[in-house]
Design a protein around this nucleic acid. Sequence first.
RNA 1: GCCUAGGUGGUGAAACUGGUAGACACGCAGGACUUAAAAUCCUGUUCCCGUUAAGGGAGUGCGGGUUCGAUUCCCGCCCUAGGUACCA
Length: 989
Amino acid sequence: MEYNHKVIEKGWQTFWAENGTFRTSESTDKPKYYVLDMFPYPSGAGLHVGHPLGYIASDIFARFKRLKGFNVLHPMGYDSFGLPAEQYAIQTGQHPAITTEVNIDRYREQLDNIGFSFDWSREVRTSDPAYYKWTQWIFMQLFHAWYNKDADKAESIDTLVERFQQTGSEGINAACDEDVKTFTAQEWAAFMPEEQLQELLKYRLAYLRESTVNWCAALGTVLANDEVINGVSERGGYPVEQKKMMQWSMRITAYAERLLTGLDTVDWPEPLVEMQRNWIGKSIGATVRFPLPQLDTNIEVFTTRVDTVYGVSFVVLAPEHELVSALTTDEQRAAVEEYIATTSKKSELDRMSDVKAVSGVFTGAYAKHPLTGQDVQIWIADYVLAGYGTGAVMAVPSGDQRDYLFAKHFDLPIIPISDSQDISEAADPNKDGRYINSEIINGLTYEQAVPAVIDQLQALGLGKGKINYRMRDAIFGRQRYWGEPVPIYFKDGLPYLIDKEELPLLLPEVDKYLPTETGEPPLGRAQDWKYQGSNMYELSTMPGWAGSSWYWFRYMDPKNPNTFASREAVDYWKSVDLYIGGSEHATGHLLYSRFWNKFLKDWGCQGEEEPFKKLINQGMIQGRSNFVYRLNNYATAGIDEKIDNIFISHNLFVHFKTFMKNLPPDSSLFLYSDGIYYNSEVLVDDLVGFGKCLGKVVFDKYPGLANVTLYQNSFSPLHVDVNIVSNDILDLEKFKAFRPDFADAEFILEDGKYHCGHEVEKMSKSKFNVVNPDDIIEQYGADTLRLYEMFLGPLEQSKPWNTNGIEGVYKFLKKLWRLFHDAEGNFQISNEEPTKAEYKALHKIIKKVEDDIERFSFNTSVSAFMICVNELTDLKCNKIKILQDLVIVLQPYAPHIAEELWCLMGQQKGTISYASYPVFNPEYLVESEFAYPVSVNGKTRLNLPLALDLDQKAVEEIVLANEDVQRYIDGKAIRKIIFVKGKIINIVV
RNA sequence: GCCUAGGUGGUGAAACUGGUAGACACGCAGGACUUAAAAUCCUGUUCCCGUUAAGGGAGUGCGGGUUCGAUUCCCGCCCUAGGUACCA
């Protein structure tokens, strides 16, 4: 039979499913390997061809590792809590669980068509109560934990209570809120129980506190920093404002340092590591206090250049700084209040857009310089951010450009502090010179000055070295329905954990998925939803990232009812060896997952510091839209009938556009049946060709037409479904059926074809550029799809989807099939011993694929397969000894055809999945094309690579007779001689 | 502005540690088979000069450098994509 992908592929997919071919267990002597994909959110649109790119790559890798003798865990599941299902529920009233279920079924069907080797028996869904039970459990552990900085790990809150009871707050070194109290053991004991709980909340890793949040009114929820892009929501692009609310937060900042140092131990793409580093934003510096004798307090600032402290000529506070109103003098009060009012009105977006404008107001107050004791002015300005550092900066105009501009603008002093500074035009932050105007550090270098200043400040109690992080704690509550309920109830306004036995705390039914009339989250609508019948539950739900922050553990032991994953399973699988997914999760999912992983390690649940050892970002596949150009703005004379269903081919459109652009904006073209005239007078040679084309259709049909007038925008691009376009050539019949109003369309063609325009855009329904993998599979098969997605280019690179080249890959599979089938389509194989050339072709591919997979260069493997089959075809090789190994090598890429051929050779059905990867034999390959001259007994001889198959004597004769060679041998040592086809190309000395 | 990645034919791309640049594939052109189409196969295809050919020249964003030899290494610049931003 001919290569029939439909029959072959369905058959094998059924076989794999029925036989549980890819079911994994822990009981084996093989080394383990964990290959994970970022699990998808099952959206209503289904998969498009961009989605499976990463899954195909990971599947190839997983299958390859199996062949290499590893016990491979390769699971798949769904991140099934999320906004779209809820939005859909709001619109239609359908329960998000139902929508989600339907979408998951659709996803599963599409995934199955591609022939993945997932172990589906381990599937997880984050919205499944049996799953989110453990998400809630982890939350409870985080609530019950504090971070002991001395031990550098999270500990049970009980150990903290114990220490409070014994020694009070003395000596506690914790990651906690700023406003913790200091107290003795006696004072602690004297606190009311509520006070104690209130205080403990400031230490917990999951905690409740009033914080400024990104409130998105349109979505009715708060958003995390990484969900806000340029001041608008990532989803939907709605405006986001700052608002104070009581919120659940996660003390991820406790792990800032470990999250940073851990990045050095993982094998991740450099851009991603860099993104996380920037997000954490560590800066090493110092805090400096500027005394305020009038208020008996200090202004604390953070600086990374404490050595420039003698250059301070003023201090700037953020407008929101808590000391502002207290220290503002009466004369300045009006100005200050007005300034605060204007800045608070500015949205995040405004503030970002006028970054360059200098603004600020003097408070009228002065602080003492900590080292010189001189008075320095205190200003407020919105270039100082309340949320970073201490919300106040010491201004060093000579060393910082923003301070410099501020000083210039308000005519404040600029003090040079280094003999190498040039501050005539701008601030100069260089660290090269010696200090001047700097009392105790005059004449010192930067390296000497920093510790000197810090020592002095510390001695005065006015400063100390400090490390600051940009990263904020993560807001953990969402005022939405479709998420995990937080396992908390309230009594007298204080949060308590529900009993562990009550887990999972099920998502209650509600009548509507909207906030209540009183503005509470949707869960406020649930009837009789009280903890043990009396206490109110927390009404917000967990954010989208909760369920995805630990899911790789659940795959290890997905059905366990007693724990999130058994210790045996966790110790066996340890961490993910290879993780494939998009880089858009750099500062969200990938950071939170590392945080929870570290916490679970501290908690003694698992032993790995990092969850994902190696990570690959697959590039996004963008859409490639096609356009047709319709006549839609014109005037006719001498005819009544409409003639607007005319489409011009792409090059004519470009021609037309270019030409019109060169005319005055309000000009128009008149068309006559024998050509085009510009302004009815001048014949435009350029447009003759265009005019003839256009004239043909228009005037054949309307012979009596006197003229048509065209304007600048007479032809406008219109998205056309990419599925009726092939190689940018429009299928005219399908186009007429595409939309009813195109039924009588007429075309102005080039070379008898309608060429469409194209553009790279996001893949979306409205742009008619969505390509469904099912359609590709229907036409070419899953193996072709898999190979083609890999063939498209480097995995990590983003690229537009373009079906144009797929024929080439399809041809390769057909060629391979035909090589082992005769003209009648019967399987035909020879038992003969292969020739050297045949072995060479085979071993080339064995080596190549192995190398390529190890370095994730899947696209070059596909090319190599084609070369291999071309070579074998030329050799007319249909030998069993070649095919046996070849199909194993091919199996990760094109598993269906590989299985089928394996079977046809008389091997037991399905055993190819457990075969072992063929051993590469270098004897068959040309290793190198270089010859190395060596000296033997004073005579120069050539070391020729054996595989080159050259006549030693003949080559030596040629090479040694070469003048250059002689010259080099006399002068210097020759490293190698490069020759191709017996000819010397170059000589390396 | 800063950080990161990248820039090679008509197109997707390859060249792994400096060694025949453009493998492989698409597209295009020509040809074979066929009544015809599909399918399949063959030949050519970086650009310029040379009627064909033999042959010659240029060529991996631009300008320099190191080297017998540079897409690859170094310096400066330009452009594109992604990230990030009054972060003190």
